[in-house]
Design a protein around this nucleic acid. Structure first.
Lengths: 198, 198
DNA sequence: ATGATTCATGAATACTGATTCATGTTTCAA
DNA sequence: TTGAAACATGAATCAGTATTCATGAATCAT
């Protein structure tokens, strides 16, 4: 509900979910300011005022969507990484999983990017949380001799940047993305760098 | 002027420039929607209506700022690259120049990112133009044996992603950025990749 | 020096859209 | 079955701000 408790009836739960789904679609497509509450409730098939039964403000749904993106991407990437034989394999799987996620839920991806302006705290939180776990994994891998030594925090951010930008260009902007090719090319760069083979 | 011609008096030229500078500051700080025309003219020291003598709409100044960012970054990076002995050196210089630019004009950097939502055409144009030139340079370097072969377009976007994200995290979010360290760490990754030394 | 042109001003206009609320309807535990 | 609690509705409120415009001042080519 708008206050903070969960809905107490079946119908309430369903309505809230419908509104959240509608908000993801509408805000993802039109952007935060252009998306009106009326757009969202129309998409959800409810009356205008119903929105305010479940969310106190427009910012509140947005915030919740950013958190959802956080959980969903972490889950997708973690699962994809799980069982990889070594860190390099994990890198490749993780990149593929991220790009697949962007392809599956483009609206959520755009919402996180817009959070930079609409909800800066959440934006930083999203990436900082991700980066922390990422750097920790990289450090462990360096200890294990699976990857080169270096500043793993800088690397974590650099690698997140690669994934984000490839998502923009080769998933969102492409009619029929060739994910395998992009992943292969990017992974070759990540593993071996730009330097010429000796 | 609002129509499309340039100001015809000294004063007009100065006013337009003041408004553009004010818009960069205000929009960069508060974001596009939160920044009002009144904020911009107050910052510029002019009356409200004066804005519309020089720009037809709020979107128009924004668009001009995105173009300015395009020119300015290309100029900064091109100059930094100029005279580098080889492509790897150029990569390092270019990355440093970009991060220095972000540090010098953070508002412009944020404006370009917000263009993704406010002026998508300009946003794509900015990065596409940059990527095209970047990929061309990488191809030439691969021909010359200075870097490894591979899909240089994917690489160009991946490397732009690295620069963007490091700009966010280690320039915008850092009180006293240690650019040299970031550049060194990132460059090591770009040159050699994540793979362990044989 | 001067008047045609360009520019400056800010109050008034116009519109959009978030949020509220008074009035019903539905749900579900007992 | 039932009534207290939870939920649904959409017209009305309220606020903010982009844009216009009628009036007056500054500029500069001649």
């Amino acid at each position: 509900m708008a206050n903070g408790t969960a809905p107490r009836t079946r119908r309430g739960v369903a309505r809230r979910e419908a509104l959240l789904k509608a908000a993801e679609k509408v805000i993802g497509e039109k952007g935060f300011s252009a998306a009106s509450i009326a757009d969202i409730t129309r998409e959800a098939g409810t009356a205008l005022g119903t929105f305010y039964i479940y969310f106190p403000t427009k910012e509140a749904v947005f915030h919740e969507l950013v958190l959802e993106m956080g959980h969903a991407t972490r889950a997708a990437v973690t699962q994809a990484i799980d069982g990889a034989p070594d860190r390099l394999a994990a890198e490749k799987n993780g990149l593929r999983a991220f790009l697949q996620f962007v392809a599956a839920r483009p609206a959520l991806y755009r919402i996180v990017e817009e959070a930079r302006f609409v909800d800066p705290e959440a934006y930083r939180g999203y990436f900082t949380t991700f980066a922390r776990a990422y750097a920790t994994r990289l450090r462990a891998a360096a200890e294990a001799g699976e990857i080169a030594h270096g500043d793993q925090e800088v690397r974590a951010w650099a690698l997140m940047g690669v994934a984000k930008t490839l998502g923009d260009r080769f998933v969102l902007w492409e009619e029929k993305p060739d994910l395998d090719h992009v992943v292969d090319s990017a992974f070759a760069l990540i593993r071996d760098g730009l330097g010429p083979k000796p």
